[in-house]
């Protein structure tokens, strides 16, 4: 079927970036692969309606919301006697050569902060598009992004561009 061939082509071209996005959002390689599979399946389910629009943006939106929704799900709490150690904030520029260090730094962020950092600074989306993708206000994007960068101890050094480049 022609639409199936188009979808297969879309998967081939978009999967690497989606997998990388999912990995940045979850920090877990296998979870990222599962999340991308689910997001692509949802895209396929809606393919006839979105194939002529921007399927990559649609799938990315599904993926981000899928990861955020998983964090919202009710958790089963297992009490422990000892309080776990909290990560100590460090200067962002130290140790960024290691992906594990990046994942550890991103783990300090809330799911929403993490999603905004990934959309804003990995995908280079303008703040307005990030707001539309996450269905939140522009002000929330700006404040959350600032808070996330502060947690990561990132100093911008120069003004952050008001709008991003190409996706």
């Amino acid at each position: 079927m022609r639409s199936d061939a188009e979808f297969a082509e879309f998967v081939g071209s978009s999967a690497p970036r989606l997998l990388h996005t999912a990995y940045l959002l979850s920090g877990d390689r296998h979870q990222a692969e599962d999340d991308v599979q689910t997001a692509l399946a949802r895209t396929y389910a809606a393919w006839s309606g979105i194939r002529n629009r921007d399927p990559h943006a649609y799938t990315r939106k599904v993926l981000v919301n899928l990861v955020i929704d998983r964090w919202r799900r009710p958790l089963r709490e297992d009490p422990y006697e000892q309080v776990p150690e909290r990560p100590v904030p460090e200067d962002f520029t130290r140790g960024l050569d290691h992906q594990g260090e990046l994942a550890r730094l991103l783990d300090q962020l809330t799911p929403r902060e993490r999603a905004i950092v990934v959309l804003r600074h990995y995908h280079d989306l303008p703040e307005a598009e990030v707001a539309a993708e996450l269905n939140i206000s522009l002000g929330t994007v700006k404040s959350t992004n600032s808070r996330a960068l502060a947690k990561l101890r990132v100093s911008t050094g120069q003004p952050v561009p008001a709008s991003g480049g190409a996706r």
Binding site: H20, L24, F92, T93, L96, Q99, L102, V117, V118, H121, Y122, L149, L152, R153, V154, S155, T156, G157, Q158, V160
Partner: peptide, 13 residues
Amino acid sequence: NDLESLRGALRTP
């Protein structure tokens, strides 16, 4: 700057 370092790290596969 730090922001460019962050973006570079995010883009490293």
